[in-house]
C-alpha cells in the first residue's frame, strides 16, 4: 500500500505526507479562504511544519491574491517549477497557482477539459515542493474535470488523500454539498469533515446576530449523513479584507502587507500575524488541530482516515 507507483506524479508526491483536498459543490462558499486558513493554521501547528498549497481553480484562481502574492512570478528550474514562498526565506508555506502564470491580471484562461487535465498533471508532477507535511489543494466549484483529474492522477500513487467539504448554511448550498459528499464516496476519498462557513453575522452597530445565509444547516447535514462536523465559522468582515490583500488596518501597524513574499522575514510573516487578529483565527485553529489529530492518529494506526 505504501510502495509508490513509478510515475512522475508518484515520484513527486512521495515526499508529501498528507494531501487534503478542499471542495464544495457550490461556488463562493469559502473553499479558497478555508484552504488559505487551513494552510496557515497547519503551518502554525508546529514550528517545523512545512505546508504546500496548490490552487487547481484554473479559470478563477484566488489563492495568489489571498496570500498576498498577486503578480508574483514562478521560476522554472531544471527540476521543475519552484513554488512561490508565502513566508519568504522560511519557506514553510509554499504555493502554486495558474494565477502566477498569467501575464495580466485580467487574462482569462479559457480551457476545455483535456487542457485542464494536462495542466493539473503538470502541477502534480512538475512542482518542486520538496518535503511537505501537508499539501492543501484548493479546487473550483463542482465535481468535474479538475476533480476527476486530481483523483485519477493521485489515487494510484498516494495513500494519504483526504477531503474537507465546505458549505454555507442555506439550502441551495447544502444541496450541492450533498453532491460533493456523494462524489467523495463515489471515488473512495476519505472525508476529514464538513465546515459550515458564513454562519451568522454580528452587526457591528448593535451586536445583533443575523443569519445572513441562514445557520445550522451544515451541522444538521453532518448528523444526518454520519460525517464529522468540524465546526461553523461566522461571517467575518475582517477576514474578507485580509484575504482581499487590502492594505493592513492601522491595528497591525508596522507590519508589511506581504505583497512580495520575499520581503517577509521569518519572524514577521505579516499575513500570519494579521490573520491571528481576526475573530475567525481562533475558531479555525481548533478545526485545524482536530484535522492534525485525525491525520496523526491514522498515520499511527497505518490505515487511511475513516469517515
Amino acid at each position: 500500500m505504501t510502495e509508490v507507483a513509478d510515475t512522475p506524479v508518484g515520484r513527486r508526491l512521495q515526499h508529501v505526507k498528507h494531501i487534503i483536498i478542499v471542495c464544495s459543490g457550490k461556488g463562493g462558499v469559502g473553499k479558497s479562504s478555508v484552504s488559505t486558513q487551513l494552510a496557515l493554521s497547519l503551518r502554525g501547528s508546529s514550528p517545523n511544519a512545512r505546508v504546500g498549497i496548490l490552487d487547481i481553480d484554473l479559470t478563477g484562481p484566488s489563492i495568489p491574491r489571498m496570500l498576498g502574492l498577486d503578480g508574483h512570478p514562478v521560476h522554472q528550474s531544471s527540476d521543475g517549477w519552484v513554488p512561490v514562498h508565502a513566508d519568504g526565506s522560511e519557506a514553510r508555506l509554499v504555493c502554486m497557482s495558474v494565477g502566477f502564470l498569467l501575464k495580466k491580471k485580467e487574462d482569462s484562461v479559457v480551457w476545455r477539459g483535456p487542457k485542464k487535465n494536462a495542466m493539473i498533471r503538470q502541477f502534480l508532477s512538475d512542482v518542486r515542493w520538496g518535503e511537505l507535511d501537508y499539501l492543501v489543494i484548493d479546487t473550483p466549484p463542482g465535481t468535474s474535470d479538475e476533480h476527476l483529474s486530481l483523483i485519477e492522477h493521485m489515487a494510484p500513487v498516494h495513500s494519504r488523500l483526504s477531503a474537507v467539504i465546505v458549505t454555507t448554511p442555506q439550502a441551495v448550498a447544502l444541496l450541492d454539498a450533498m453532491k460533493c459528499l456523494s462524489f467523495t464516496r463515489a471515488v473512495n476519498l476519505p472525508l476529514l469533515g464538513l465546515i459550515e462557513n458564513m454562519s451568522g453575522y454580528v452587526c457591528p452597530c448593535c451586536g445583533e446576530v443575523s443569519n445572513v445565509f441562514s445557520t445550522g444547516g451544515g451541522e444538521e447535514m453532518a448528523r444526518r449523513e454520519g460525517i464529522k462536523f468540524l465546526g461553523s465559522l461566522p461571517v467575518d468582515t475582517e477576514l474578507v479584507t485580509l484575504l482581499d490583500a487590502a492594505e493592513p488596518s492601522p491595528l497591525s501597524d508596522g507590519v508589511t502587507s506581504g505583497v512580495n513574499g520575499d520581503t517577509n522575514s521569518a519572524s514577521t510573516f505579516a499575513l500570519w500575524q494579521r490573520y491571528q487578529q481576526t475573530p475567525t483565527a481562533s475558531l479555525f485553529s481548533k478545526m485545524a488541530e482536530e484535522i492534525v489529530r485525525t491525520l496523526a492518529r491514522d498515520e499511527g494506526s497505518a490505515t487511511t482516515p475513516s469517515e
Binding site: 448593535c206 445583533e208 443575523s210
Partner: peptide, 13 residues
Amino acid sequence: VCPKCKGESQIFK
C-alpha cells in the same frame, strides 16, 4: 442592513 438597528454595514467590503 441590520434588521434590528437598521444600520448598514459592508460584509464584502
